[in-house]
C-alpha cells in the first residue's frame, strides 16, 4: 500500500508482556512479520498465543513492551492500529440470524465503507472463501468449517495490510484446509503480512515462510530457528536390500538407524534436494537398493516436539 510498510516490518512486537491478575499470560514476546510474508506462531495450548495476538490486534493493552502495526502503536492511536489489522479470532461468534452477505456487509460498513461498496466487498469476499452459494443463508445454518471461512472473510473485509489469524484451520475439512493454505499463501503474495497460529503443524509447514515458537509466554528466538533448520535437514531413507548403516557410515553421514519390519531405514542429515540426490547416487553405487527418501514429516512439528521434550 504505502512505501513505509514495504520497508519496515508490518507487524512488530518487542518484549511484550501481559498478565491477567496473577496469571502472567505473556512474559516476554518478540516477533516481527515482514510485508509479503507468512509467519507461524506455534506453541502448546495456554502458552499465550491468543493473548499475544489480541495485543497485536489492538484489543488488549500490553503491560509492557512495544507493539507496532504498520508503524502505528495501538496504545497511541487505537483506531488507526485496529483498522490496519484483520483479526480472525479463535472463538467463532456469528450473528445467527444475519445472512453471510449481511454479516460481511455490516463489517465492511463498520470500517466506513458505503452501503453499496460494502455489498460489493461482501460479495467478492464470499466468492473468495467459497461461500457465494450460501450468501443468503443465515449464519446459524452454517457448519463449523463454513463459519470458520466466514470468519476469515470477515478478517479480510477492510483489506488490511496485516492479518492475524488465530487457529484458522481448526474445524476445517481436508479440502477446506488446502484452500485455506492456498488463500494464505496468496495473501502473502499480495504483500500482506500474515501471522497465523495453528496446531496442525504439517499444514503450516507448507504455508509459512517463518515460524515463531512460543512457550510459557516467551517467544523462543534463535534456538527455535536453529531447531527448525536442523529439522529441515532430517530425511528418512528406506532401503529394500543392503547394509544401509554401513553405507551411510562410509559416506560419512550423520544418521540414526530406525527399526522397520522389512529392509532397513535410517534418518539422515541432508542439506537439500541436490544433496539428497547425491546421497542416493552414492548409496546406489554402494549396492544399496534405495526404496524411498524424503524429509521426515513436518519440520515445524519436529522442532515443536523436540522443544516440548527438552522442556520436560
Amino acid at each position: 500500500m504505502s512505501d513505509v510498510t514495504t520497508m519496515a516490518a508490518a507487524l512488530e512486537a518487542a518484549s511484550v508482556r501481559r498478565a491477567f491478575g496473577s496469571v502472567q499470560a505473556v512474559v516476554n514476546a518478540s516477533l516481527s512479520v515482514q510485508p509479503g510474508s507468512v509467519t507461524a506462531l506455534i506453541g502448546p495450548n495456554g502458552c499465550g498465543k491468543t493473548t499475544l495476538m489480541l495485543m497485536l490486534a489492538g484489543l488488549l493493552r500490553p503491560d509492557g513492551g512495544e507493539v507496532r502495526v504498520g508503524g502505528i502503536s495501538p496504545g497511541a492511536s487505537p483506531k488507526a492500529a485496529r483498522t490496519a489489522v484483520g483479526w480472525m479470532p479463535d472463538v467463532l461468534g456469528t450473528w445467527e440470524s444475519l445472512t453471510c452477505r449481511e454479516t460481511l456487509a455490516t463489517f465492511a460498513r463498520a470500517y466506513g465503507l458505503t452501503p453499496a461498496d460494502a455489498d460489493a466487498r461482501a460479495f467478492s469476499l464470499l466468492e473468495r472463501v467459497h461461500l457465494a452459494d450460501l450468501a443468503e443463508q443465515p449464519a446459524r445454518v452454517l457448519s463449523r468449517g463454513q463459519k470458520q471461512r466466514l470468519s476469515l472473510a470477515r478478517a479480510l473485509v477492510n483489506d488490511p495490510p496485516v492479518l492475524i489469524l488465530d487457529e484458522p484451520a481448526s474445524g476445517l475439512d481436508p479440502r477446506s484446509r488446502v484452500e485455506l493454505r492456498d488463500l494464505v499463501r496468496q495473501l502473502g503474495v499480495e504483500g500482506k503480512a500474515v501471522l497465523v497460529s495453528s496446531h496442525v503443524l504439517a499444514e503450516l509447514d507448507e504455508m509459512v515462510d517463518d515460524a515463531v515458537f512460543m512457550s510459557k509466554g516467551v517467544t523462543l528466538g534463535e534456538a527455535a530457528d536453529a531447531e527448525v533448520a536442523r529439522a529441515r535437514t532430517r530425511w528418512r531413507l528406506v532401503a529394500v536390500e543392503g547394509d544401509l548403516a554401513g553405507a551411510l557410515a562410509r559416506a560419512s553421514r550423520d544418521f540414526t538407524v530406525e527399526q522397520v519390519p522389512l529392509g532397513s531405514a535410517a534418518v539422515v542429515s541432508v542439506a537439500d534436494d541436490a544433496d539428497a540426490a547425491a546421497l542416493v547416487a552414492v548409496l546406489v553405487g554402494d549396492g544399496i537398493k534405495v526404496a524411498r527418501i524424503a524429509p521426515v514429516g513436518s519440520a515445524l512439528e519436529q522442532a515443536y516436539l523436540t522443544m516440548e521434550t527438552e522442556r520436560r
Binding site: A57, G58, L59, K79, R82, T83, V85, W87, P89, V91, G93, F107, A110, Y111, G112, S151, R154, N158
Partner: peptide
C-alpha cells in the same frame, strides 16, 4: 462483540 470492537 470482539470482532465489532476490532473495527473502526
Amino acid at each position: 462483540m470482539a470482532p465489532l470492537q476490532a473495527t473502526a
